[in-house]
Amino acid sequence: MKKSIYAAMLSGIICPGSGQLWLGKKLQGWGFISISVVCIMVLMDQMISRAQVIAEQILAGNIGNDLASIYAAVSEVALDTGSSSMSALTWVFLANWGLSIISAFWFGAQQDKQLQLQTDTKTAE
C-alpha cells in the first residue's frame, strides 16, 4: 500500500494528525492532534454544562421525572441553534480533520515519489 493512502487512512480513521506522525512530520502531526483535543475538550465541557442544567431542572421539579419529559428537554436543548460557538467549534474540528487527511495524503505522495525515483535510479544503474 502506498504511503499516501495509508497516512490518509490513519488521519481519517484513527486520529487527525496520526498520518503525519507516521510519515515523520511530527510538528504537523502534533499540531493537528492538539487542535482536535482542544476542540473536543471545549465541546464536551459545553455538553456537560447543558446536561447539568437539565439535571438541576429535574431535581427542582421543573421537568418531570419520566422518560418522555426528559427526552423532550434534551431534544429542545439539542435543537437549540442559538449556540453559534458550539457550531463554529464543530466546524473547526471537522475542517481540522479534513485538512489532516489532505495533508497526510500530500506528504505521503511526496514520499512515494521520492521512493519511486530512488528505485528507478537503482534499476537504471
Score class of each variant (00 low, 15 high):
residue 45 D to E: 11
residue 122 K to Q: 08
residue 18 S to P: 00
residue 79 L to S: 11
residue 103 S to E: 04
residue 58 I to N: 03
residue 84 S to C: 06
residue 109 A to D: 08
residue 21 L to V: 10
residue 76 E to A: 06
residue 66 D to K: 09
residue 49 S to V: 15
residue 100 S to W: 02
residue 97 W to D: 04
residue 111 Q to V: 13
residue 19 G to H: 00
residue 44 M to F: 13
residue 103 S to D: 15
residue 11 S to G: 01
residue 63 I to E: 06
residue 109 A to C: 01
residue 80 D to Q: 09
residue 27 L to E: 10
residue 115 L to A: 12
residue 48 I to V: 13
residue 50 R to E: 14
residue 92 V to R: 06
residue 88 A to L: 12
residue 38 V to C: 05
residue 24 G to A: 04
residue 22 W to L: 00
residue 45 D to T: 13
residue 53 V to A: 05
residue 26 K to M: 11
residue 97 W to I: 05
residue 89 L to V: 02
residue 32 F to H: 13
residue 93 F to R: 12
residue 101 I to H: 02
residue 121 T to F: 14
residue 54 I to Y: 03
residue 30 W to N: 03
residue 123 T to M: 11
residue 64 G to P: 07
residue 72 A to E: 14
residue 4 S to L: 09
residue 25 K to M: 11
residue 54 I to N: 05
residue 3 K to R: 11
residue 94 L to V: 10
residue 106 W to K: 14
residue 56 E to R: 05
residue 8 A to Y: 03
residue 101 I to F: 05
residue 125 E to P: 13
residue 35 I to E: 01
residue 123 T to I: 13
residue 39 C to F: 05
residue 121 T to W: 09
residue 123 T to V: 10
residue 70 I to H: 04
residue 104 A to C: 06
residue 75 S to I: 00
residue 103 S to Y: 06
residue 5 I to M: 02
residue 94 L to S: 04
residue 67 L to Y: 12
residue 11 S to Y: 02
residue 87 S to F: 12
residue 77 V to N: 13
residue 26 K to Y: 08
residue 92 V to Q: 08
residue 11 S to L: 05
residue 13 I to G: 05
residue 33 I to S: 00
residue 59 L to Q: 15
residue 112 D to V: 15
residue 96 N to L: 01
residue 37 V to W: 02
residue 51 A to R: 08
residue 49 S to E: 10
residue 48 I to F: 09
residue 101 I to A: 03
